[in-house]
Design a binder for these strands. Structure first.
Lengths: 258, 258
DNA sequence: ACCTGAACACCGTTCAAGT
DNA sequence: ACCTGAACACCGTTCAAGT
């Protein structure tokens, strides 16, 4: 039951129906500023729609995002969005793109630090900051099918990864070593940040206690070790886990493979 | 726009509408075997439905699973499923449960090996085997909201985690150390297996080459490093990555924290 | 006891029609 | 040029009715 993908009549290579990256998250090179529509509504365009989608998911979660509701949020019927976005899937890809652009701005527009260790620290903390700013979006970053199979979540921007590899090159990593670092780095971030953002998405930095009741106590009674350990298991130790494992992983990157 | 959860009239604690764990994935203690319905159809029950859901997702992916299609697969209207499963969300939780039970059977019904290092190796390889058997289900295991916030994906079975902690206890880990191991272990598995299963879900152990064209070449031309490295980036190195990082992580667990 | 038909309130998406 | 109304083919879910 595959959806047929109709040929575009205009001769453009339809490809996989990606968004125009130029007008997505970034600002246009100062053009004619269409401010407001006669009706007083904000003028629609792809960037406006994608940013509103980001805001909406941040607030309500990705389950709640529908074309109809997003349209309503922008003062327009759902059908109007299809002029700017090919469909819901591409909208979600665009959301990921906006967030990755934010990451790029945060991590790549500054001078390289003195050591490659500091560089990796800086990059890791940048990605973590983004995942904490958008905990409800991070699962999308982590699990939407990427543009290329070798583009590993959560580092899903060609531009960002290019910059990352440039950085490694600057510190003297050869291509093979760089690939190894990129892989270890992405795996590390995916594991840590997906777990952390999952918690943070439901309870934005809330109390650690009282969570023990969350499982029906009858169930828990069957498992004595979980019973006694659940207070310890409930402690929020993500900060330490992240920092320790990050340092560990960075140390590991210093040793070249045979 | 919250969905109202109506009070059950039968006085049972409705709670969060979980499935009856007894009849889920496991076989019943030999009872009256209702084999076939008069019409010749397989008799419905929760276990049959959940196992069919697992099979269906393995084959078609989780996007394709709808109550209506699952019903059709079982020779029944969608509405008939609601007698055995509270709703779609709980169905998906049940799917996760079935897979976790499979993991339990694979890893917990055998004698403990000689060293805790071997034990962790065995557990890690068990989880990896499950993720490779159900690559299209693994994202559910990784990202459905768990029963308790401290129950970290992908290790989402109270029973399994209890067994894991029992194992650690047997090798002399004290409770604090065990929690530390559990956390590092789950983070490690989540990162590695989510990446690997994502690849494996679309291409079951397929060719490594030709993936380079997957990104429009025009895009890639902007990024010289990605351009030259994409062949290396496309190589399937998950086996080595997993084994190396696992050994590394196990080494790290030997050192107690201050 | 177990399943179905019909209905409800939603989806994403298309397209001719309005301004 | 840009948006809408109406329509289509789907969803999940409820419930009275059938057997």
């Amino acid at each position: 039951m595959e959806t047929e993908r109709p040929q575009r009549p205009d001769g453009a290579t339809a490809g996989s129906g990606t968004l125009d990256p130029e007008s997505a998250g970034r600002k246009r090179a100062a053009g004619p500023e269409r401010v407001n529509t006669p009706g007083g509504r904000r003028a629609l365009d792809q960037g406006v729609i994608l940013r509103e989608a980001v805001r909406f998911i941040d607030e309500h979660g990705r389950e709640q995002l529908t074309m109809r509701r997003l349209g309503a949020e922008l003062g327009v019927e759902a059908m109007a969005l299809y002029r700017y976005v090919p469909g819901r899937d591409q909208l979600l890809d665009g959301v990921v793109e906006v967030v990755m652009d934010e990451l790029y701005g945060m991590t790549m527009n500054r001078p390289l630090p003195g050591s490659w260790q500091e560089f990796l620290q800086q990059m890791a903390h940048g990605v973590r900051a983004i995942s904490m700013e958008h905990p409800k979006i991070f699962p999308l970053v982590a699990s939407r099918p990427p543009a290329a199979p070798w583009l590993r979540p959560p580092l899903r921007s060609l531009r960002w990864v290019e910059g990352f590899l440039e950085g490694l090159d600057h510190y003297g990593f050869d291509p093979t070593e760089s690939v190894r670092v990129y892989r270890a780095f992405s795996t590390f971030l995916l594991g840590h940040l997906l777990l952390e953002s999952a918690i943070y998405a439901v309870e934005p930095r809330a109390a650690p206690a009282a969570d023990i009741e969350f499982v029906e106590s009858s169930d828990l009674a069957l498992y004595p070790r979980l019973m006694t350990l659940s207070p310890q298991l409930s402690l929020d130790t993500f900060d330490n886990e992240f920092e320790d494992a990050l340092e560990e992983m960075i140390d590991r990157m210093a040793i070249s493979p045979p």
